[in-house]
């Protein structure tokens, strides 16, 4: 009987010493580079995480959008084109939920058109108006062909011209989540409610980061 009591006390003690679970975190994605140099005979290491590089695009109002526009903002990126018959409308419906919930909290959305021929900025403005967007929280971007496709590569997004596929272009259905310091933090299936829900829970975490 005595032993039982001691055992119970020990178990209670071990329970109370449990640490609270660590705070949930969102991983930083992309290649991490480690530089080293020798200073005063000692080797010093410097870890550099991948950062989205400088860019310049034109939004639906004809204004220039660059890295200054998004500096300090959590933002979401997707690739689309206005004549897209397949997954784009669904992705825009899902993004609209994100816009409604987070545009007041400083989250920006950058939708890159991959069809610069047809999606001039007035065409993008018309498309934005159909989605009832008339502000700078959700930007529809265009620019010159090569810089758009180079940007897709930097976001590790798939976007290509393809005469065979419906609408003339193919692209993936991902939303890409980027933090306030331009690190990619996540990829989410933008064609499903579940993907969007997961992204929104990660946005909550990123908004609390400094």
């Amino acid at each position: 009987m005595k032993w039982h009591l001691i055992l119970c006390a020990a178990m209670l003690l071990s329970l109370s010493s449990c640490k609270p679970p660590p705070e949930p975190k969102v991983k930083v994605l992309g290649e991490t580079l480690v530089y080293h140099q020798t200073i005063d005979g000692q080797v010093r290491y410097d870890t550099v995480t991948a950062v989205i590089p400088q860019f310049h695009f034109i939004d639906q109002y004809g204004h220039q959008v660059d890295t200054g526009t998004i500096s300090g903002h959590v933002y979401v990126v997707d690739f689309f084109f206005t004549h897209c018959p397949s997954i784009c409308p669904k992705m825009k419906a899902e993004l609209h939920k994100v816009y409604e919930k987070y545009s007041d909290k400083g989250v920006l959305i950058l939708s890159h058109s991959i069809d610069p021929e047809r999606d001039t900025f007035p065409a993008l403005r018309l498309y934005a108006e159909k989605l009832n967007i008339d502000n700078n929280k959700w930007l529809f971007l265009t620019g010159d062909h090569d810089s758009i496709y180079a940007m897709a590569d930097r976001y590790l997004a798939y976007a290509k011209e393809d005469k065979e596929s419906p609408g003339g272009f193919v692209h993936d259905g991902n939303f890409i989540l980027v933090d306030k310091k331009r690190h990619i933090r996540g990829y989410y299936d933008g064609t499903t409610d579940e993907g969007t829900e997961k992204m929104m829970s990660d946005i909550e975490l990123l908004l609390h980061e400094k």
Binding site: P89, K90, K92, A93, H96, Y127, E129, K130, N132
Partner: peptide, 16 residues
């Protein structure tokens, strides 16, 4: 149909 017109037929804003 649902990817444009929505699972419940609700459409998308002024787009669909």
């Amino acid at each position: 149909c649902s990817s444009c017109h929505g699972e419940k037929g609700e459409g998308i804003q002024q787009l669909v």
